Amino acid sequence: MAQPEISVVVTIFNEEGNIPPLLKAIYASLSSIDYELILVDDGSTDRSVEKMKALANERTRILVFNKNYGQTTALAAGIDHSNGQFIVTMDGDLQNDPSDIPMMLEMAKKEDWDVVAGRRANRQDGFVLRKLPSKIANWLIRTTTKVYLSDYGCSLRIYKAQIAQNMGLYGELHRFIPVLARQEGARMTEVDVKHHPRIHGTSKYGLSRTFKVIADLILMLFFQKYFQRPIHIFGTLGLLSLALGVLVNFYLLVVKLMGEDIWGRPILLVGSILVLGGIQLITTGIVAEIIVRTYFESQNKKTYSVKATHQGGQEAN
């Protein structure tokens, strides 16, 4: 089977009302492109799977999970089963518009972008529950990760296949996909895309995700700065804690030698905690370094990524 130009990965969870217009829009928008469509059903409990089976064409594959694993896992499964030169991701709620895909594909090919991300220029969502939390999250992610995209919440994106397939999607990291792509050295840009109000079904997002986003952001910052060198953060903090503990205990020793009673002083407890905490942090850093080396060496992974090689006037990717 020849490699298609693009693989379109759509995540579905209880979207039975959106399936018919969604597939109709995708088929019409991609009629002039060599594509494959991968629909990933994330454990729907309605008739979404039946609708997909009834309307799927010969270019469509359906992956059906046995339970709900979450959007990140659904995206990872779709990407793993993709064969295209480029991979497009989008939600199945019809708020993304498939008619934007040809324009984004042309931009990726002509300007050699690794990632073209959609930006919802006229977002059709409620302000208090959707837009405001999203604006705060976007600002926080941009500021801390230094990956300057305007709209991290827009799932309509197009990637070169080698970028998408090496990102390593786990947990609930779909909002941080641009950060993961940048860690792979991706060149990315944004483009305005259409956005529609939800007509069928209910949104799967809300304010309850705020703390999860913050927790995932902490994880992303660790991955971004210290994934290959965890001893630099654990060792630095451990040495600082150990040094402070030694200073506190030295002060207490001097006080003791001067004849004062140090038993029961809160500072004695502080000094002990700092010393023990410092030792524990340094030990954690060493263990983390061993785990990182096991991660890379056991799977023959490299700590670098080569974009292209040149020899004798010829280029090999």
Score class of each variant (00 low, 15 high):
10 V>H: 06
66 N>D: 15
225 K>P: 00
84 G>K: 01
257 L>C: 09
296 F>A: 10
220 M>K: 11
32 S>R: 02
282 I>G: 05
239 L>S: 04
85 Q>A: 13
312 G>K: 08
266 P>I: 07
11 T>F: 07
5 E>H: 15
313 G>V: 09
180 L>V: 08
264 G>C: 06
163 I>P: 12
153 G>R: 04
47 R>A: 14
247 L>H: 06
189 T>A: 10
84 G>I: 02
201 G>K: 09
6 I>Y: 14
120 R>Y: 08
23 L>V: 13
165 Q>D: 00
160 K>E: 10
303 T>C: 09
115 V>H: 05
110 K>S: 08
6 I>V: 12
184 E>L: 13
49 V>E: 15
82 S>F: 04
60 T>Y: 09
197 P>A: 09
258 M>A: 13
263 W>I: 06
223 F>H: 07
10 V>F: 08
42 D>E: 05
288 A>T: 04
18 N>G: 14
131 K>V: 06
218 I>G: 11
166 N>E: 12
252 L>F: 06
37 L>D: 06
46 D>F: 00
231 I>F: 00
268 L>Y: 05
231 I>L: 14
243 A>W: 11
74 A>Q: 10
45 T>S: 10
315 E>R: 07
120 R>N: 07
27 Y>E: 14
292 V>W: 04
56 A>C: 10
144 T>A: 04
154 C>V: 11
110 K>Y: 02
290 I>Y: 15
168 G>K: 00
232 H>M: 13
27 Y>S: 15
40 V>L: 08
7 S>T: 11
296 F>G: 11
117 A>F: 07
270 V>F: 14
205 Y>E: 01
296 F>H: 11
267 I>F: 05
171 G>N: 10
278 G>N: 08
196 H>D: 00
284 T>R: 09
75 L>N: 12
91 D>S: 07
228 Q>F: 13
33 I>H: 04
224 Q>P: 06
27 Y>L: 13
87 I>F: 03
148 Y>V: 00
126 G>A: 13
279 I>D: 00
282 I>L: 14
95 Q>I: 13
33 I>C: 04
233 I>A: 02
317 N>Y: 11
211 F>P: 00
9 V>S: 01
209 R>E: 03
4 P>Q: 07
160 K>M: 04
287 V>S: 03
262 I>D: 04
67 K>P: 01
231 I>D: 05
161 A>G: 03
42 D>P: 03
237 L>Q: 12
260 E>H: 10
1 M>G: 07
170 Y>A: 15
194 K>E: 13
118 G>W: 02
304 Y>E: 09
291 I>P: 09
281 L>E: 11
216 D>M: 05
114 D>S: 09
130 R>G: 01
184 E>T: 12
266 P>E: 11
119 R>F: 04
268 L>R: 14
169 L>Y: 02
262 I>V: 15
315 E>C: 09
88 V>L: 08
164 A>K: 07
303 T>Y: 08
151 D>C: 02
48 S>I: 01
24 K>M: 06
287 V>H: 12
204 K>L: 14
249 N>P: 01
121 A>D: 05
59 R>P: 01
23 L>Q: 02
87 I>P: 01
223 F>N: 10
44 S>L: 14
175 R>S: 03
236 T>L: 11
107 M>H: 09
221 L>G: 07
185 G>D: 01
80 D>C: 02
129 L>N: 14
76 A>C: 01
87 I>E: 00
269 L>W: 10
183 Q>E: 02
166 N>I: 11
68 N>E: 08
8 V>T: 08
274 L>I: 12
126 G>W: 00
101 I>H: 10
